[in-house]
Write a protein that binds this DNA or RNA. Structure first.
Length: 558
RNA sequence: UGCCCGGUAGUAUAAUGGUAGUACGAGAGAUUCUGGCUCUCUAUGUCAGGGUUCGAAUCCUUGCCGGGCAACCA
């Protein structure tokens, strides 16, 4: 066997180099969510990357909550994040919180003050903004910039002691107000917030900013490769500056491009709006690109991981086709989903030459892709439902389904032939009278008849009524965030369609977490809204339908 | 008119100075008791110019295009 072609992404290449030249013997990565929302498909990429790296290379990954802003962070989010990471199939070495390090971070701040590298500024946030300058003009120094170390120490301790109101003072790094990198123009390190923190309670009234917390937390945990998204590139200079001046463990930051997916948004702020303003039923609405939404919709961790693998990791802007995600879930579900028959828009078929009240059951495989999945029995009968669009009175060429005088096979049962079409007063087809070929039974067909079409069906007497929720993309445009106006103007108001279905009775034992393929329709799973006697199924994704595509093409031609 | 990233088929991603590949998507066909799955085949690409080199997607340079940077958010 030739050695498998390995193609490393740019971060893996860096790590391989670092390992090869002895910089590290093993690596440490971390996944650092802020607990202010639910995880989404974009985070899945970061999770797969960070945890995947330490599966591929020696080392481990921490889960660290970046909880430095008590105003927006909640325990509910912490719990959902942990559940989602585990569900995706990853386990962290240590569960950590930036807030675990508040004491240490405070000491770091004191160190910077003592070194003359930080000062307390009495300016308001507006004043700081006004003196910041612009990307093309230097900023102006604050009058407080040259306070003595003693005064800064005193003021900062009193900030911590709660002597000053919110917003009255900040601790700022003393770097360079004329720096070409705006982030280096004396960035705010600490701010006063008399707010209750989800973990530290009321212990603190000063909280570190992202830059004062993130890199230092990485360093405390001896993170070797701190991976984040592209918008943090300009922060790297500050990240390195703080580590150097604090003389602490030198973690290094590497940036990759966040993965964007078309016809959706992946911004926690926007997703929160959709939830708060009731465009969806919650963070786990099956139309949401959240991990919990995808899970409820019927996506599997395997399919999401496969998707993340396939889209890869790089530094260029991207807009990934959601069709690839759908491909990944179809591919996985095809292998594992149990096949069932459900008729959505029924038309009754009466098999005129079939015996009255005959209790026949037919056997059908649970999954042709997996022989170990066995078979089930399905009640057959004189009256069955088939799909209304599986019959046409005047069929076009290459229509393999039922039509007057035309024969089809009923899946796992018999071949039938349509003899007569019965219509109601309005001209709508109400019944189809068919005859069956008794010697065409699946498995021991001696009829010698070959048919092109096979239909799914359900026995009228045994059909179970179920509710089916069909989902479409949440937005009408590929990239709602980049359109003019508000992204919510582009919401697809038809993203949810509720329909009735008539299911074979084996679906009565469907359980949460099971995946089904409704034959010739798509993949479905039971929704948690189901309760005693009421069955609700979510459509994960449709089956590929080349016939529908063909029809669309010919109708466009006309 | 500042600084920092980045530009390879429709999309995403390889090729690390030596034959521009792969996957999805698209098209054609085979097979099929799911018009699913599977199988076969086809089309489509290095942003542009200049330079270095025997040889450039890759190195240099100029330009063009896209993105980011002025929160007491992360």
């Amino acid at each position: 066997m030739p050695a498998e072609e390995t193609s490393l992404n740019f971060i893996e290449e860096i790590i391989e180099q670092d390992l090869k030249n002895g910089k590290y013997k093993s690596i440490v990565t971390r996944f650092p969510p802020e607990p202010n929302g639910y995880l989404h498909i974009g985070h899945a990429s970061s999770i797969c990357l960070n945890f995947g790296l330490t599966k591929k290379f020696p080392g481990y990954t921490n889960l660290r909550f970046d909880d430095t802003n008590p105003m927006t962070e909640e325990t509910e989010y912490v719990e959902s994040i942990k559940e989602d990471v585990r569900w995706l199939g990853f386990e962290w070495k240590n569960e950590r919180y930036a807030s675990d390090y508040f004491d240490q971070l405070y000491e770091f701040a004191l160190t910077l003050i003592q070194k003359g590298l930080a000062y307390v500024d009495d300016s308001s946030s507006e004043m700081i903004a006004n003196r910041k300058g612009t990307p093309t003009e230097p900023g102006k120094e604050s009058a407080d910039r040259n306070r003595s170390v003693e005064e800064n120490l005193d003021l900062f301790k009193r900030m911590k002691a709660g002597e000053f109101p919110d917003g009255s003072r900040t601790l700022r790094a003393r770097i360079d107000m004329a720096h070409h990198n705006m982030l280096m123009r004396d960035p705010v390190l600490y701010r006063i917030k008399h707010a209750h923190h989800h973990r530290t309670g009321d212990k603190w009234c000063i909280y570190p900013m992202y830059d004062m917390a993130h890199g230092q937390s990485d360093s405390i945990e001896n993170v070797t490769h701190s991976i984040c998204t592209l918008e943090f590139v300009p922060h790297r200079e500050l990240y390195d500056w703080l580590i150097k001046n604090l003389e602490i463990y030198p973690s290094h930051q590497y940036e990759f491009a966040r993965r964007n997916i078309n016809y959706t948004v992946t911004s926690k702020r926007k997703l929160l709006q959709l939830v708060n303003e009731k465009y969806v039923t919650g963070w786990d609405d099956p139309r949401m690109p959240t991990i919990s939404g995808l899970r409820r919709r019927g996506f599997t961790p395997e399919s999401i991981r496969d998707f993340c693998d396939r889209i890869g990791v790089a530094k260029r802007e991207n807009l990934v086709d959601v069709g690839l995600l759908e491909f990944c879930v179809r591919e996985h579900l095809n292998k594992v989903a149990l096949r069932r028959m459900v008729v959505f828009d029924p038309v009754k078929v009466i098999i005129t030459n079939y015996q009255e009240n005959h209790n026949e059951k037919v056997k059908s495989e649970n999954n042709p892709e997996d022989v170990s999945s066995g078979a089930r029995e399905i009640p057959f009968g004189k009256e069955i439902y088939i799909e209304r669009d599986d019959f046409m009175e005047n069929p076009p060429k290459k229509y393999f389904r039922l039509a007057p005088g035309q024969m089809v096979r009923l899946k796992s049962a018999y071949i039938i032939k349509c003899d007569e079409v019965i219509k109601d007063a309005g001209g709508r087809i109400s019944e189809l009278h068919c005859s069956y070929l008794p010697d065409s039974h699946s498995g021991h067909d001696t009829s010698g008849v070959k048919v092109k079409g096979t239909l799914h069906w359900v026995s009228v007497n045994d059909a179970v009524e179920v509710e089916v929720r069909e989902y479409d993309r949440l937005f009408k445009v590929e990239d709602p965030a980049s359109e003019a106006g508000d992204f919510k103007d582009y919401i697809n108001e038809n993203s949810l369609k509720i329909v009735k279905g008539y299911a074979e009775p084996s679906l009565l034992s469907a359980a949460l977490g099971e995946h089904f393929q409704f034959l010739r329709k798509g993949y479905y799973c039971l929704d948690k809204d189901s309760d005693n006697g009421k069955f609700i199924f979510n459509r994960t994704v449709t089956l590929k339908d080349v016939w529908a595509k063909e029809q669309q093409k010919t109708s466009v031609q006309k």
